[in-house]
């Protein structure tokens, strides 16, 4: 537990010292949203709900791939070996995973706020919308952490990362899009609980398999 905390601490400090990484994600989000605003050429709040929703999730997914995916790619060969001698693979994964979940949730919330200011906010049921964002971010972080670990072992990393993670992100993305559409329409909560539960169980499956499989990547 102590080790997990110190890994998270190290990641946060690293991020805090050279804010370039975090700032670049925020700038990426803001400029993508602004590009969308300019290219759709609609006044605030006039975009159709379906388009609004789809665009939001596309932006979030790409920002996640840019931001979260670097977790293992930025580690040098030497530092990996140093970690390897210090602690168990589960500890490394927990540290990285918790940090990535925090980062991913932060990306989604900042994205939502900026997006809502520039393109309007049609959401009716905010509680469920934010719950969807939270659960989807956990799933994204789980998948991207493991895929980033996989890709760090293969060469030509960045291109491979996108190709490997897109198709496995899709199930979570599809449930999330459907849920957030329901939250925008303000459908009765009892109809959404089932989908929310499905999203939660997919997250659980993703994280459980990540824990089972990570030691094998780590050992090589």
């Amino acid at each position: 537990m102590q080790q997990v905390l110190s890994i998270i601490n190290k990641e946060v400090k690293l991020e805090w010292r050279n804010k370039t990484a975090f700032n670049s994600i925020v700038l990426y989000l803001v400029s993508t949203i602004f590009i969308c605003y300019l290219s759709f050429n609609v006044k605030t709040g006039q975009m159709q709900a379906v388009t609004w929703n789809a665009l939001f999730w596309i932006i979030i997914v790409f920002a996640n791939i840019n931001g979260v995916a670097k977790s293992f790619l930025q580690e040098g060969e030497g530092r990996m070996l140093y970690y390897y001698t210090l602690c168990k693979p589960q500890v490394i994964l927990s540290g990285k995973l918790i940090f990535n979940i925090l980062l991913s949730v932060l990306i989604a919330i900042i994205g939502f706020v900026v997006y809502a200011i520039i393109l309007g906010n049609p959401v009716v049921n905010h509680v469920y919308f934010l719950l969807t964002i939270l659960l989807a971010s956990i799933g994204f972080a789980g998948i991207l952490t493991l895929v980033s670990g996989i890709v760090s072992k293969a060469n030509n990393s960045t291109a491979l990362l996108a190709v490997l993670s897109f198709p496995i992100l899709l199930p979570i993305l599809m449930i999330a899009i459907r849920l957030s559409k329901n939250a925008i329409d303000g459908i009765d909560a009892s109809l959404m609980n089932e989908k929310l539960f499905t999203l939660l169980s997919v997250d659980a499956v993703v994280i459980a398999t990540a824990y089972l499989l990570f030691p094998f990547i780590w050992r090589s």
Binding site: V147, P167, I168, V206, A210, L213, I217
Partner: peptide, 10 residues
């Protein structure tokens, strides 16, 4: 193998 198992789970 790791990717295969992970992909199957999703």
């Amino acid at each position: 193998s790791v990717y295969n198992i992970f992909a199957y789970a999703t």
